[in-house]
């Protein structure tokens, strides 16, 4: 029986750079049928897509599941890509969004293994779910600490955006500032959060 495919350790060999660039830059070289073109894209980009997914979910079987979701989305929405030069970026974004959606779904599940911290600690980190590997308690605590160190204006904008889900215009109205000012605060706040998270956790990221 063949061993399960590990996309992180044994990625498929990449296509030659020149050929793929040419294929993606000239969509006429893809099959004329959109579904066949999408299937060809998925086949050629499988390794890269799996590596993107594996940044968020470290479990090989979960990577398989998310990759299937990505494949379905690509097959269904390939027609929405108007600029051929944007196909690869669109593929990347589709894989990233699918991974984040999977993490959010798992995080909302009521039967998370958080209820059994002692059992999990007894068997070590390997018992953590793929969601907990990416979104561990240590990381959440570090982010909260980093948030507390932000200037009030940036923290306020980030909490309104992320916790309450307000869009930029709503935040601008709430805070009585311009939309551009909101985006500046969000950009600086997010950058500072990421930098402080890396400073707090160091090599654990």
């Amino acid at each position: 029986m063949a061993e399960p495919h590990d996309p992180v350790r044994n990625p498929p060999p990449p296509a030659s750079p020149g050929a793929m660039e040419a294929i993606l830059a000239t969509p006429q070289t893809l099959p004329a049928d959109p579904r066949e073109a999408a299937a060809e894209l998925i086949r050629r980009e499988e390794g890269g897509l799996r590596r993107v997914i594996a940044r968020y979910v470290h479990d090989a079987s979960t990577v398989d599941d998310v990759f299937q979701e990505v494949s379905l989305k690509v097959l269904r929405r390939i027609d929405s890509v108007r600029d051929p030069l944007a196909i690869r970026g669109w593929l990347f974004q589709t894989a990233r969004n699918a991974s984040l959606d999977w993490l959010r779904r798992q995080d909302r599940r009521p039967d998370r293994s958080d209820a059994l911290p002692d059992t999990r600690a007894a068997v070590g980190d390997d018992a953590r779910s793929p969601c907990e590997q990416f979104l561990s308690r240590e990381r959440i605590t570090a982010v909260r600490r980093a948030l507390d160190e932000l200037p009030e204006s940036q923290r306020e904008a980030i909490l309104l955006r992320i916790e309450q889900g307000l869009d930029h215009a709503a935040i601008a109205q709430r805070l009585g500032i311009s939309r551009g000012a909101v985006e500046v605060r969000l950009c600086r706040g997010r950058a500072a959060l990421k930098d402080r998270l890396e400073a707090i956790l160091g090599g654990d990221l």
Partner: peptide, 20 residues
């Protein structure tokens, strides 16, 4: 990609209630 995944981690962690 690695840097973006850390930005995404920040977003997910802030949505998640701090159970600690």
């Amino acid at each position: 990609q690695d840097s973006l995944s850390r930005h995404d981690l920040v977003s997910l962690a802030l949505v998640r209630r701090p159970e600690t």
